[in-house]
Design a protein around this nucleic acid. Sequence first.
DNA 1: AGAGCATATACGTGTCAAGGTATAGTCAGG
DNA 2: CCTGACTATACCTTGACACGTATATGCTCT
Lengths: 121, 121
Amino acid sequence: MESVFEVIAEPNRRAILSLLVSSQQSVGEIERQLRMSQPTVSKHLRVLRDAGFVESTVDAQRRLYRLKPEPLQEVDAWLAPFRRFWSAHVDALERHLDRMDQSTPTKKKSTRRRPGPKPRT
Amino acid sequence: MESVFEVIAEPNRRAILSLLVSSQQSVGEIERQLRMSQPTVSKHLRVLRDAGFVESTVDAQRRLYRLKPEPLQEVDAWLAPFRRFWSAHVDALERHLDRMDQSTPTKKKSTRRRPGPKPRT
DNA sequence: AGAGCATATACGTGTCAAGGTATAGTCAGG
DNA sequence: CCTGACTATACCTTGACACGTATATGCTCT
């Protein structure tokens, strides 16, 4: 299974993670809320556990699964360079629109309302 | 291919995206830098294009591929609830360490240096 | 027009992962 | 101890995808 990206590629696994973000859950609870078969849930949890997305504690016959942050933080870190990329794009768009505002002397019929140019970063 | 998560599950596709974050590239340039076969590059670019990760402009026989922000922003958005989760965890850890600092009167040999407790959010 | 470069696509193949069914292990309570 | 609830695992089948090889398409320049 290798990478965190392959792990979160599976929709059911993302659903499980989204469930666990609110609070820890037992296998049976996940099974019922997500309408998946028990073996399927267990197998996905196995993958998530091996990849460090979740950990489990024992409560009698149940196992309570809870979220662990590290792998998703890894995804977040991978995203960082792209965030810089797209915020640069938004800035470029804003500068463009600002120039259009200047060179379009009150000819608008639908009023475009935006904040002024951002301070230099 | 469906979801953005499946698209970025593939390591070569992530490599292509990382390449494109600096500037647009032709297929041949990608091929050489990533040491992939030309059909492989083209096929991955097809997937990326269909999913909206990239767009291409024609430059004579070449096609220049450039990044588009939306799909990665979608990933970023999916991550949001989990960010709240793990920042809560970090806060809890910090409060815990702060309490330990108080109740451990100068017994450390390796100096732990951290900023003070965060202001209320 | 023809040669050559750059890119896209078709087809066949191997691999792997996801789900179902069946079964095994484990714990609590009578 | 035996039963029933809860969870994990084994085995099998199926489908999807990634890659390689071969080929098609399109553009430039002479």
